[in-house]
Amino acid sequence: MIQLKRIRILAIALLAFSCSKNNETVQTPPLKVDVVNVKSESVLLEKDFVAHVFGKIDIPIRARAEGYLEGIHFQEGRMVQKGDLLYTVDSDPFQERVNTANSQLASSKVALTQAENDLARYIPLAEINAISQKDLDAAIANRDAAKAMVSAAEAQVRYQDIQLGYTNIKSPINGIIGKTNAKVGEYVGRDPNPVILNTVSLIDSVRVEFYLSENDYLLLFREYQEEKEKLNRRLQILNSFYLTGLFLIN
């Protein structure tokens, strides 16, 4: 009976040894795992907004003369040079005013010549007391008044020439001209009709104008507050280190 137990124990030991050998021989190799190095870096987040683009300089082209638009002398969206003719307004009424002013100037000059001739005759007569001093003074006053009338008439001619010049609307700068706000035949220069006819823009650099929604504003403000708090904490830590260092030195 004892001999049988020994045989069983030996069989179990051999079986266990055999299993351990088998396990050692069929052991699978370790799995290959891909390793990735992780690093942190700043990432730029982009967001789209609806915006208006403006030129570095935007010059409105105004109709300073009232009248019917006779001509448009440019192509929209093209480059124009300073002094280029852009629009022409009906100039006939302004030319008539210039003619009237010139006529008044001519009449004033005739009156001045008459007054000077009268004065030239009165002076020798006054020297021999052939006329009274009152008549001489009146002749001098008429001559001076005639001179003033000539000066006023000349100023009126210059003014009407300026008004006539406003019928030719030219570019004030080099730049790109936009879309016209008035068409040929339209009355311009007085509200509610078009007064600003167009815009010439200098675009060597541009300005962009856009608006934030309430949510975007709050998000940016929150991020700003968080960054500000982080900066304040860092300053507090640096101040504490500085004060500690001073204490240790003392």
Rank of each mutant, 00 (worst) to 15 (best):
P124F: 03
F221I: 04
D118K: 08
E116Y: 02
L125C: 03
A148I: 07
V188S: 00
P60R: 01
L15S: 12
L125D: 12
S201G: 01
I72A: 11
Q163E: 15
I140E: 14
R207H: 06
A139P: 11
V43C: 05
V157F: 04
L218F: 06
V200C: 09
E209A: 12
K147V: 10
D137N: 14
A155P: 07
L238W: 03
R233I: 04
R64M: 01
K183L: 04
Y166D: 14
L235C: 01
I9P: 03
N232G: 04
G55Q: 05
N23D: 12
V33F: 09
V157T: 12
P29C: 04
K147S: 10
C19T: 10
S108H: 04
E209D: 09
Y187G: 08
L14E: 05
Q156M: 08
D161G: 09
I123A: 05
Q75N: 14
Y211V: 12
I169N: 03
R6A: 10
A13P: 15
G55D: 11
V53H: 07
Y242L: 09
L14H: 09
Q160M: 05
A51M: 04
E214N: 12
T180K: 15
M79Q: 03
Q156Y: 05
G178Y: 06
P30I: 02
A153T: 03
I7F: 13
L119D: 03
L243P: 02
E154K: 13
R143N: 10
E24R: 09
S151K: 14
E76W: 01
K21Y: 07
N117Y: 04
I7H: 13
L202Y: 15
L45T: 07
N102T: 14
R62H: 00
G185V: 06
Y87P: 01
F17D: 11
N102I: 10
G77E: 01
L10F: 15
A101Q: 02
S103W: 09
D144S: 12
I140K: 15
A106N: 10
V35K: 06
I12S: 13
N22Y: 11
F49I: 01
F49D: 10
N117R: 07
A111Q: 15
E154F: 08
E154I: 06
D48L: 08
R62M: 00
I9N: 08
L243S: 04
I176G: 01
L219N: 09
A152Q: 15
D161I: 01
R121I: 06
V35T: 14
I59C: 10
R6C: 13
S205L: 06
V80D: 09
I12W: 11
L243D: 05
Q95R: 11
A106S: 12
N142C: 05
D48H: 11
A155C: 03
V195R: 00
F49R: 00
R234A: 08
V195H: 00
V206N: 05
L248V: 15
N129M: 07
I169S: 01
K109M: 14
S201C: 02
L248W: 13
S151P: 02
K56N: 14
P30N: 10
Y242C: 01
F94M: 04
E186W: 01
L238D: 11
S108N: 12
R64N: 02
L243F: 09
A145S: 14
V208I: 15
L125M: 14
N168V: 03
I176E: 06
K170H: 12
N99G: 07
